[in-house]
Write a protein that binds this DNA or RNA. Sequence first.
DNA 1: GCCCATCTACTACCCTGGTAGTAATACTGG
DNA 2: CCAGTATTACTACCAGGGTAGTAGATGGGC
Lengths: 131, 131
Amino acid sequence: MGDKHILGDLQHAIMRVLWAEGEATVARVQEALEEDRDRALTTIATMLVKMEKKGIVGHRSEGRQFVYRALISETDVQRSMVGELTEMLFGGDVTALVSHLLSEQEIDDAELARLKAMIAEHRSKERRRGR
Amino acid sequence: MGDKHILGDLQHAIMRVLWAEGEATVARVQEALEEDRDRALTTIATMLVKMEKKGIVGHRSEGRQFVYRALISETDVQRSMVGELTEMLFGGDVTALVSHLLSEQEIDDAELARLKAMIAEHRSKERRRGR
DNA sequence: GCCCATCTACTACCCTGGTAGTAATACTGG
DNA sequence: CCAGTATTACTACCAGGGTAGTAGATGGGC
């Protein structure tokens, strides 16, 4: 679990389906991804096999279908990938990342207010936990 | 410039050297990256050729050496990659990313204080700009 | 002038993500 | 029972990042 969990676009899209649905067959995954782009069933199936080999999904048999499920959580992936990126782009400095978000990404007043609230929230939470 | 600019580890490491030094020969890049890991000179050279083909670096000849320089800024790359990741992991919701940072990444009190200050700063800046 | 060191050019791999066709197999409706 | 369909298994291929060897050119020292 302390692994790298760096996923590509398709892999991540597939994970999102599994996270949302808990379990899904290949056909179900393809169907869910259809709106996005039309991929062959075998594309999804092949990808799932590769992902299983990596240990990020597992499956059980139901009749002759495979029912896949995620073996890592969305938070795991977020942590891995955000951590990786923060390290690569900002030398691991989280505040540098936030600073970048503030100056380079469009953030409107409402979002800014939410951020402020979140930080206040977090602060009190930390304090309560006795840090 | 509105391109994708998604770089791998080595490419990014090379860019960091070019950003730091303005210009650098292949040998200089290798030397700068040596502490990190020992790579063959030709590895760096090949990578630079690929990067030039992508249009992210350029070179001029000095004697029989090539002197490379970056054609995109660090901010460009940060914007691309942070944007990409935010889209992929948080559906483009920047506050969700910050929320993740607060809850999942270790942030100490000092950093938190800096964040708070940054947000306040940013706020007044926006206001001053007349938004 | 010649040999050696230095550079780039070219070529070749490996790996992983992504995409999909084809083969084999098992099931199902008539 | 048999044909067609659904489903996985196997194989193949492309692209791009990463790594590096070998070849070829060129310049410097003696």
